[in-house]
């Protein structure tokens, strides 16, 4: 079972990396770029025998405990 986990910086946290990527895009001529924020995408393979509900529970715990730092990041996932 493939779980796709998306980690993004909270809106209140500045993202200098995103700002730099944004500048580079503008330099390449993409004049319509208004903002860029860089996050992480993680693929987790879970055992196929797991029920979806249990998988959700487990992934949530993984995000809270390790995959995301909830002081600075939000997370979402898709099973």
């Amino acid at each position: 079972m493939l779980v796709k986990v998306y980690i993004t910086l909270k809106p209140s946290v500045l993202d200098p990396q995103g700002k730099t990527v944004q500048k580079s895009l503008e330099n390449l001529g993409f004049k319509d770029v208004k903002d860029v924020r860089v996050g992480k995408y993680i693929e987790v393979q879970l055992s196929d025998t797991l029920k979806k509900e249990e998988a959700q529970k487990q992934i949530q715990k993984m995000c809270e405990r390790l995959l995301a730092n909830t002081v600075i990041e939000n997370y979402s996932f898709h099973i």
Binding site: L14, V71, I72
Partner: peptide
């Protein structure tokens, strides 16, 4: 220490990158 929750907050990439 911040990651383990013993201290509050977090350490981010330097603004200069």
């Amino acid at each position: 220490l911040t990651e383990s929750g013993l201290l509050p907050g977090a350490l981010l990439r330097n603004t200069s990158l």
